Computed example of a mutant assay.
Amino acid sequence: MIKQLVPFIKDLYQTNDFIPLHAPTFSGNEKEYVSETIDSTFVSSVGKFVDDFEKQIENFTGTAKAVATVNGTAALNASLYMAGVRHGDIVITQALTFVATCNAVNHMGAESAFVDVSPVSLGLCPKALSVFLEQYAVATDLGPIHRETKQRFQAVVPMHTFGHPVELNELIEVCREWKIALVEDAAESLGSFYRGQHTGTFGDFGAISFNGNKIITTGGGGMVLCKTLESGKHTKHITTTAKVPHPYEFFHDEPGFNYRMPNLNAALGSAQMENLQNFIDNKRQLANMYLDFFKGTEFEFVTEPDYAKSNYWLNAVICPSHKEREKLLKQTNAEGVMTRPIWQLMHRLPMFKNAIAGNLSQSEFIEARLVNIPSSPVNFSSTL
């Protein structure tokens, strides 16, 4: 099968040149809007495209208020701050995630604790979360605290891995039972829906990324999805240095962040949003073609859960063994087709090696076998 994969992918993309894992697509008004921004001279954080981009995200996701930030990590950092995470707290997340999830926790002076993922979603497992809290936490009127250290468990952060939504209803139930905030790391899941509702809109806050490799890009950028208009206004305030509006005075009424997205980036994002649905449709078609290719082999293509509609941001395949994973990675990359293993589990990294962790057997299984394969939108009209 591995020998057939490279020619299959090269045929999909109609090229013998190097094929990246996920490249941005600029096929609309990107140049026009960016040029308009340059001509206006409003290239920094003040300009019409920031407001326009936030409104586009609000309309698409159904969130009460969207707040643009300089990158996805800043969006998650602001989300955690707004959810009450402070120095010394513990934030529960998955070990199978990109390091930015834990970096955002660390920036708050908080600590990450790691829970296993579900084979259904590749994201935080609600059963594992419940077991973890029973083992390590004591319930109080103000929420759970660690049995030994008495630190607060202030938030749970599931990540929608590769755009596939986690089991949100079940996670919400556990968080409600334990009186703990839910913050969604939706960095990869713009355009993904859980039971008809957009990811990032279930928790108290959600964070989206617009890095260059995401389904749409602003070059660098992020967005906080806020559950209420009031919390959205406060999030906007703290991410813009907490400056109180005034014609000329500089007065800041609380500690704030300089997380503002430049208008130049927002212009790119506004143009990208005009093609988002096309990108989603295209990527779902690509995923179906991969699914057909791997059908009947020992390699399991990762599909969306039954309850979800995924953007299929990064396509992935689970190999029958670690040895087969290594063979796939070496052969495809040697032949100019970029593939990548999933991230190393967070508790294996030196800065998180002493973190609290539950049983991570499912995470370890996936880490040893999963490979991401090229996922850029395809020009299917040229392949038909």
Rank of each mutant, 00 (worst) to 15 (best):
K3F: 11
V6E: 14
P7G: 13
I9W: 09
Y13C: 03
Q14I: 08
T15S: 14
N16Q: 14
I19D: 10
F26D: 03
N29Y: 13
E30H: 01
K31G: 07
S35C: 09
E36P: 01
I38P: 02
S45K: 12
V46D: 13
V50P: 02
K55L: 12
A64T: 04
V67M: 11
V70K: 09
N71I: 07
A75R: 02
N77R: 07
A78P: 05
H87M: 14
G88L: 06
G88N: 08
D89P: 14
D89L: 14
D89N: 15
V91S: 08
N103I: 11
V105E: 04
V105R: 02
S112F: 11
S112C: 15
S118A: 10
P119T: 09
G123V: 05
P126C: 10
L129A: 08
Q135W: 06
V138W: 08
T149H: 04
T149S: 09
V156Y: 00
G163V: 07
V166F: 09
N169F: 12
N169Q: 14
W178Q: 03
I180N: 07
A187C: 03
S189M: 05
S192V: 08
Q197A: 06
H198S: 00
T201C: 00
F210E: 02
N211R: 09
I215C: 02
I215F: 01
T218Q: 00
G221N: 15
T228G: 02
G232H: 07
K233A: 15
K233Y: 14
T235A: 15
T240K: 06
T241P: 08
P247L: 12
F251G: 04
F257Q: 00
Y259Q: 05
P262A: 13
A267P: 03
M273Y: 11
L276C: 05
L276M: 04
L276Y: 13
F279R: 06
D281P: 10
D281H: 09
D292A: 09
D292L: 06
K295I: 10
F299P: 07
E300G: 04
E300D: 15
E300W: 13
D306F: 12
A308Q: 00
S310T: 12
L314H: 12
V317G: 11
V317I: 15
I318S: 02
S321N: 07
H322D: 11
L328F: 11
L329V: 06
E335M: 08
W343A: 14
P350Q: 01
M351Q: 15
F352Y: 05
G358Y: 05
N359Q: 14
S361P: 04
E364C: 04
N372D: 11
P374D: 00
S376C: 06
P377F: 08
P377E: 12
V378Y: 02
S382G: 04
T383L: 05
T383I: 08
